[in-house]
Structures are given as structure tokens and as C-alpha cells.
């Protein structure tokens, strides 16, 4: 009963919410009308926009020592999560069967485990720092916490289901993924996509003004 719901309608519903929500939010950001910049351009906006999208992957030298934990843990978490999301054997198989119809070479099992260990340690450290650093805690909204915890739950249920031996644990993982997908478009999780237009916008704005940052 509940198996059919989670594997069937709820899955398509959450997928639809995710896709439509993401497209709608990205569209509303990109096509939002902005006030025209009437100032005389001192530099080119385009190249600066592209440059900023990438240059912001590296923090400024001056502050690295103050943000070591979020910097290192952040990369551990995001790279680990990306790797296991798209290259773990069960995920590749799932995407091939349920969504895409084609697959690719998954990473070996040990790499899957190491990637998830990096992701777990990174996420735990990021969340702990969010709680113990007064500034981070102050600027964290409940949305940030829900997003972090929901992502953690998805990862944890996935870890619980690693034996791939029972329907119950697989359904638990899939159900938490569905909740995550539904929450995604309306939350801080959107930064997965919005970091690009956001950086590009800042870059373009700076570029036009001739600011090199």
C-alpha cells in the first residue's frame, strides 16, 4: 500500500514540484525586471559576470584563516555529496531505470563509501559551526536548519539502506528524498542553482563599474 504510494504517485508529485518549482523560481529571478543602469560603463559586464561565477569558488586569502571550518568542511560536503549523488552505483541504476533510460559508469563501492563519509563529516561540521559561531547562529533562519536537517536525514536514511537488502529501508530513503524534493524549490536549498545567477549578477554589476572583485 504505502509502498505503491511512495514508489508511484508521491514520487511523480515530488518530482513535478521540484522541476516546476525550480524552473519557476529561476525564471522569476532571471527575468525579473531590473532598473536600467544609466551610468557610463567603465568596464565590460559580461566577462566579469562569468569570471565572478568561478572566482568565488576560492575565498579571499585574507579571510581563509577565519573561515577554515566552513571552507574545508563546505568543500568536503559538497564534493562528497555531488560524487555520491551522481556516481554511486545504486543511484546510477535508479536514474537509468526510472528517469533517463541511460546510465554511466558508477564509481567503485569503496569510493562511494569514502564520498559519503566526506559528505557526512562535512555536513556535521558545517551544522555544528552554524550553531556554535555566534554570528552564523544569529543569521541562520529556521529555513537553514530545516534544509540542513532534511539533507542530513536523506543522507542518513541512504546510509541505513546501504545493505540494499530490505524494502522497508529503501522506502524510508526514497520517502525522505521526496520530502527533500518538495522542500527544495522553496528554500535555501535553491542555492544549488541560484548561486550562478547571483554571482553573475554581482560580477556584472562590479564589472560595469570597473571594480575588480
Amino acid at each position: 500500500m504505502i509502498e505503491n504510494l511512495i514508489d508511484g504517485p508521491l514520487w511523480y508529485f515530488s518530482l513535478a514540484v521540484f522541476v516546476i518549482g525550480v524552473v519557476w523560481r529561476l525564471g522569476s529571478i532571471i527575468f525579473a525586471s531590473r532598473k536600467q543602469d544609466l551610468s557610463v560603463a567603465r568596464g565590460a559586464a559580461g566577462p566579469a559576470a562569468i569570471k565572478t561565477v568561478f572566482s568565488r569558488f576560492v575565498p579571499h586569502k585574507e579571510i581563509v584563516s577565519q573561515i577554515t571550518v566552513p571552507f574545508v568542511a563546505g568543500y568536503m560536503f559538497h564534493l562528497g555529496l555531488f560524487a555520491l549523488l551522481f556516481f554511486a552505483a545504486p543511484h546510477v541504476a535508479f536514474l537509468e531505470e526510472n528517469l533517463l533510460g541511460f546510465g554511466w559508469t558508477p564509481m567503485p563501492h569503496w569510493a562511494f563509501i569514502v564520498a559519503s563519509q566526506l559528505a557526512f563529516l562535512g555536513l556535521i561540521m558545517l551544522w555544528v559551526r552554524r550553531m556554535v559561531n555566534p554570528v552564523s547562529r544569529l543569521i541562520s533562519t529556521w529555513d537553514d536548519h530545516v534544509a540542513a536537517i532534511l539533507t542530513f536525514v536523506v543522507m542518513l536514511t541512504g546510509c541505513f539502506a546501504l545493505l540494499e537488502g530490505s524494502t522497508g529501508l529503501r522506502l524510508l530513503h526514497r520517502f525522505s528524498v521526496e520530502l527533500w524534493l518538495i522542500y527544495f524549490p522553496f528554500s535555501a536549498l535553491m542555492h544549488t542553482f541560484t548561486f550562478i545567477p547571483s554571482r553573475a549578477f554581482t560580477g556584472a554589476w562590479f564589472g560595469r563599474r570597473g571594480i575588480d572583485a
Binding site: S116, L156, C159, F160, A161, L162, L163, S166, L169
Partner: peptide, 9 residues
């Protein structure tokens, strides 16, 4: 099963 996998990871 969940505990074992979680513990090992």
C-alpha cells in the same frame, strides 16, 4: 541492518 550500516560508515 540500519545500525550496522550506519555504524560501519
Amino acid at each position: 541492518s540500519a545500525s550496522k550500516e550506519g555504524h560501519n560508515l
